[in-house]
Design a protein around this nucleic acid. Structure first.
Lengths: 323, 323
DNA sequence: ACCAAGCGTGATCATTTGTTCATCGCGCGC
DNA sequence: GCGCGCGATGAACAAATGATCACGCTTGGT
């Protein structure tokens, strides 16, 4: 950070202060700082995207917080955040829901990262569009001690939601480190999986992940519309078989039935993901966006290993209604 | 809080969330919530004035934070906040400086009030235009356990800066209690002062004030322009006498010379204010706005009983330059 | 029942803000 | 040395926001 950057950042802070605290107009600020108004607008925009100004909303008064509390108690969670719907109670667009959930999750992540600067900091991450939305929404924060560890093997397709991209993006936004499992998510056989697992690099990652303060995971529906099946990782037969065993949702490569019981199958024994028992020390935060995932979400919550939930309002209502 | 209020607050929270987090336009929000755009604008304005949304600025990157750190170390303070100047380095208007210092002080006060909801909470207050600005700038916060106690007797003139108004305003904004000393600030004689002091109500207030977590006080210059002399509490002769003893500033009815030594005089022995030694358990936060007060501020800081300082940038520079 | 006062509401307008685009300057490579 | 491209800048415009005002509704009082 050179002289120029320093004075530039200083300008950003001063502009932000004058705008948000002193409530001056951008024109006034422009004449105070001796720059053009457009420049002031850019400084203020900078201040927001760089996380120098943060805007918090006390949502305790919202009707949703009552719902949050009910869900929190029912599933014994440390916290539950319900994101307000964007369409007035109407069927909401899944992409919008993901966006909202991602933003709230990003705030949670940011607060974790800014809490303790001294200690080692490990964050475990699954992949998926919601996790990806979280990574996009994270405001930059300086946390060089942070390590972002992928909890699952990689996909070969759909690069946008690859675990590599997620941890990479997070690392670059925080000046932290990215670590990911350099193995496929699903091995061809149980024997192959064993070979992968035994790789020293894989074991290293797993040991790191075991020290994670927090893990962000998402939920997969167990039907034809799900991510896994749409990209060919789950064949129609696999799906039918899993359904016949009662599986309604998956996360971290594990399938669960509607009562939250683990559904064993040959497929699960080929997935490369961190073991649930290895994460007993971590906060496990589930992100769920979209009503299609309600049943799967309920199943995973019932399994009992989740400590925190972020979910969109419509889904939360459905979840809360049946409790 | 009835049904109507509840849904109203809920609307405020939702509108604020959609505006500040989801970054929707007021028009979009209007159609989502099914109200007019004007209504949305009002909801958002409500959210800000009621403190449901709070905007924080990380000013650590500012060049001023270096100055803050220097002052903090020099005078052994727990914290020091320097408010950015509003005019670009130019001579700033005192009223503007007061406003800025008041706003920052209000944020400090608010954070104290929201910290611990359970315990008894006592806040001691001096009076003056800067303290008054703080009271005006405080965003409402629910803190029914808070007690705002006046540390000084009342003035008979200049109602706007009377201690009564300050504690009253703070109490009404927080649902807390207001307590003030129902005696004049300056008694006619030392004997009269003793009579006032011995009143049970006065003793009650003093005992309460002794339990204060934090006290907000301001600084008076000891010259013809000062508050006390302009309102006739200090005669020209008093002033000349105090100056001859080296007094350059006062606070809580006590005068100090440029080295921070207490300047005794007959006048001081007639003022009704809490004893400094009674506040040894409290954080004592000094608000200083305006370059005219730099010398007085330095004197009081040197006296060594201040634990926190809020000061405008220009004054801070003068203060820091001579360190 | 009627009136008056007060508050919330939405139309309209002025101001403020965000965005786009052409231009400028500067450094870098050829 | 010269051109090239990238990033920063401000002018101009379009969008969004805040303010004012008149209207109508409710409420409380006579």
């Amino acid at each position: 950070m050179n002289e120029r950057d320093l004075s530039e950042t200083d300008m950003v802070v001063r502009a932000a202060w004058l705008y948000y605290v002193a409530e001056k107009t951008q024109n006034e600020i422009a004449s105070i700082l001796g720059v053009s108004r457009v420049k002031v607008a850019r400084l203020i925009a900078d201040a927001r995207t760089s996380g120098i100004v943060t805007i918090d909303i006390d949502h305790r008064l919202s009707a949703l917080s009552e719902l949050e509390e009910r869900i929190r108690n029912r599933f014994n969670l440390k916290f539950c955040y319900v994101t307000p719907e964007s369409e007035g109670g109407d069927k909401e667009d899944d992409a919008v829901a993901r966006h909202g959930v991602g933003m709230v999750a990003a705030r949670i992540l940011r607060s974790i990262l800014t809490q303790e600067q001294s200690k080692e900091m490990v964050i475990g991450l699954a992949w998926g569009r919601t996790i990806s939305a979280m990574a996009d929404a994270l405001l930059p924060v300086n946390a060089p001690q942070a390590q972002f560890v992928s909890l699952l093997g990689s996909l070969t397709r759909s690069a946008s939601a690859n675990p590599f991209d997620v941890v990479q993006k997070l690392a670059s936004k925080t000046d932290g480190q990215a670590k990911y499992l350099p193995v496929p998510f699903i091995a061809d056989s149980e024997e192959d999986r064993e070979v992968f697992i035994q790789q020293r690099v894989v074991q290293d990652i797993i040991r790191t992940a075991m020290r994670a303060q927090a893990c962000f995971i998402s939920v997969g529906e167990c039907d034809a519309g799900s991510f896994l099946s749409r990209f060919g990782y789950l064949s129609k037969e696999d799906l039918a078989f899993l359904n016949s065993l009662g599986a309604v949702g998956d996360t971290l490569g594990l399938f669960f039935d509607e009562n939250g019981n683990y559904v064993d199958s040959q497929l699960c024994r080929r997935t490369l993901a961190i073991n649930l028992s290895d994460l007993s020390q971590s906060d496990i935060i589930l992100l769920s966006a979209g009503t299609a995932k309600v049943n799967a979400t309920r199943a995973i919550l019932k399994a009992g290993f989740i400590t925190g939930l972020v979910i969109n309002a419509e889904s939360a209502r459905l979840l809360g209604a049946l409790v």
